[in-house]
Simulated assay, not measured.
Amino acid sequence: MSEIRLYMFQSGTQRCKLHDIKMNQGCGVDHEIPVPWFLLTHPKGHVVIDGGLAAEGLADPRAYWGDAVDAYQPVMREDQGCVAQLAALGLAPEDIRFVVLSHLHSDHSGAVGRFPPATHILQRRELEYAFTPDWFAAGAYIRQDFDRPDLSWQLLEGESCDDYDLYGDGVLRIIFTPGHTPGHQSFLVTLPESGAFLLAADAVYTMDHWHEKALPGFMTSAQDAVRSVRKMRALADRAGATLVPGHDAQVWPGFRLSPAFYD
């Protein structure tokens, strides 16, 4: 599997409230969101992007994720974990060269440490914040996912290394998009046949956020969140990219999910 391909996966769903996703909308209304993650295959080494929820938490969700399950209830099977889904494609953990993370919230950190000896690529300020989050953000970070002393980290430095080209060929560019968290990053993937995809992760929860009709239900900086969306809109226009929002229950089913792929 050396061709350049983008696989889209779903690590189950999370049950929450609509206002958790679209601020001040549908207060108290039940909602269910997809939990996406991605695999990019490449001749220079395969990369897992995020990884969804950690399958290890399913045996006892409250013990693993704490009181966060009261707001975001995981709906997931063990075979929807990232390691199991890659195994179904014939990939072993050692086949992954990079784990690239948008941020370290628990619905994105399920791949951390599961693919030795992969290099984990993250913003430095995100890793630092994950260890010392503000009180309102603490429940989103599950320390046992990322507090692993044997990991190999490559830490990016915000604006000073924005638009980082992982392979040096334009296939995967890492875009600094703070706001949802202080060190959030998104990904512009450009494929030979299918063109460009902007994997926004939680810099864009839904299309309402993209079109400035609603702020996300969670963020550390509203100003940064708004500016990151405008930055990505300009980038998407220049690249002719298809936007892939982080948790849009209406848009996500329209994409090809693994084992289908984009090339």
Rank of each mutant, 00 (worst) to 15 (best):
D60V: 05
F9W: 01
G28V: 09
R62S: 06
D60T: 07
T13Q: 07
A54D: 15
D20M: 13
V48N: 01
A54G: 08
H19G: 03
P34W: 05
L39I: 05
Y7W: 03
G26M: 09
D30H: 13
Q10K: 10
A59P: 00
L53K: 00
H19W: 13
D30K: 13
C16A: 11
M8I: 13
P36L: 11
V29P: 06
A63H: 12
L53W: 00
C16G: 03
D50Q: 06
T41Y: 11
D20C: 11
V47K: 04
L39G: 04
A54N: 11
R62E: 14
H42N: 10
D30P: 12
K22Q: 14
W37V: 03
R15H: 08
D60G: 04
V48E: 03
L39E: 11
K17D: 11
Q14E: 14
K17E: 14
T13R: 08
E32V: 10
H46S: 09
L40W: 00
V29K: 15
L6S: 03
Q25E: 14
K17G: 07
G28E: 11
T41P: 09
M8Q: 08
P61S: 05
H42I: 07
D20L: 10
G57N: 04
W37Y: 15
V29W: 07
R62K: 13
E32L: 07
R15K: 15
D60C: 09
V35W: 04
I21N: 06
K44V: 05
V47Q: 11
A54F: 00
P43V: 07
L40M: 06
V48K: 01
M8H: 13
A55K: 04
L58H: 01
T41L: 04
E56F: 00
M23N: 11
H46I: 01
L58E: 06
A63G: 13
I49Q: 02
L18S: 05
V48F: 02
G12D: 09
A59G: 05
L53Y: 00
Y7T: 01
A54K: 00
M8A: 08
G52R: 04
G57K: 02
I49A: 01
L6A: 03
V47C: 13
H46A: 10
A55M: 00
Y64Q: 01
P36I: 05
F38R: 02
L18V: 07
K44H: 13
G12A: 09
H46M: 05
Q10A: 14
